[in-house]
Amino acid sequence: MSQQPYQPESVRRQSNPYEDATVQNVQYGNAASVHNERQRYIDPQGNQVERREEIVVDKNQRNANIRYWIKSIVYFLLAVFEVIMALRLLFRFLGANQSNAFISFLYDLSHLFVGAFNGIFNDQTIGNTGVFEVSTVIAMLVYALIAWGLVSLGRVIFASTLSDRQTTFTRRSRQV
């Protein structure tokens, strides 16, 4: 038995005359909860050991992180759409050659976003080759408004919760 690295539980209990454990849970309404745990005991070598652990769950911080990611993703996608449509607007305005592979790809890709707005207004011809597409400008504005609305909706859904209610639960146990 002396060659075992750890003492059996029954021997350890007998050699541990002092053991104290405290668990405390504090609830701050729906906003946050704190779980404190403290344990004091004497180990088999006779050293007094104190172990403390505190776990904080902040629902407001979690909601703030979700709002941040919603905002970041929506505005990133908006920036990609806006750049694609701005390039379309610029190249159409300057009369870029539509048989060029890049221009053809750009027009095909941007047509997915602008197609729904074609025909609202007549496009204005500038000079012999350039076209000012009002539908592209309208699409850029509409997508910006949609992105702003989604970010605002994320703020409302994942808003911080404030509460004046606090609940505390404490459990203490002591073994001698």
Rank of each mutant, 00 (worst) to 15 (best):
L87R: 01
I146R: 01
V83H: 00
N16G: 03
V80C: 13
T168S: 07
L162M: 11
N60T: 07
A79H: 06
R172E: 12
R62Q: 15
R52T: 15
S104R: 09
V151S: 04
T125N: 11
L106F: 06
Q24A: 13
F91K: 04
L141Y: 06
A79M: 14
V114K: 02
E53V: 11
G115V: 10
T161I: 15
V131D: 00
A21Y: 10
Y28L: 14
Q4G: 01
I66Y: 04
V151L: 06
F117W: 04
Q27G: 10
T161R: 15
Q39A: 08
S10Q: 13
S99Y: 08
S160W: 13
V131Y: 00
V74G: 05
T167F: 07
M85Y: 00
N47H: 04
R52A: 12
I70M: 05
Y41M: 05
I146N: 00
A79L: 15
L162N: 14
F105N: 09
P5W: 02
N128A: 06
P17H: 07
H111L: 12
F117T: 08
M1V: 02
F91L: 13
N60C: 10
I103P: 02
Q3I: 14
I42R: 02
R51T: 11
R92S: 02
Q98R: 08
K59Y: 13
E54T: 15
Y68F: 11
Q175C: 04
G149L: 14
N30H: 09
E50Y: 03
E37T: 08
Y18H: 05
D43M: 04
S173L: 07
V131M: 09
M1A: 04
S33A: 08
N25D: 11
R92D: 03
F132G: 00
Q98F: 07
L89H: 02
A31N: 03
Q61L: 15
G115A: 00
S10T: 09
R165Y: 13
W69L: 11
S99H: 12
E54V: 15
H35E: 10
R174Q: 09
T22L: 09
A79N: 08
V114M: 00
H35I: 15
I70N: 01
R13T: 11
V176F: 06
M1T: 04
V131W: 00
L87P: 02
Y41A: 02
L145I: 15
R40K: 08
V83F: 10
V23M: 08
I138T: 01
Q39L: 12
E82G: 01
P8G: 02
Q48M: 10
V131Q: 01
D164K: 12
P5N: 07
I55F: 05
E37R: 14
I73M: 14
A64Y: 10
N63M: 14
Q124C: 11
N65K: 11
A96W: 03
R52I: 15
R174M: 10
A96Q: 04
R155T: 09
V34P: 01
Q48S: 13
I146M: 05
N122T: 15
N36V: 13
M140F: 04
Q4R: 03
E133W: 03
Q166S: 12
V74N: 02
K59C: 02
F169E: 13
G127L: 01
N100I: 13
Q166Y: 09
L145Y: 10
V151Y: 00
N97W: 09
M1G: 03
Q61G: 08
T170A: 10
L109H: 01
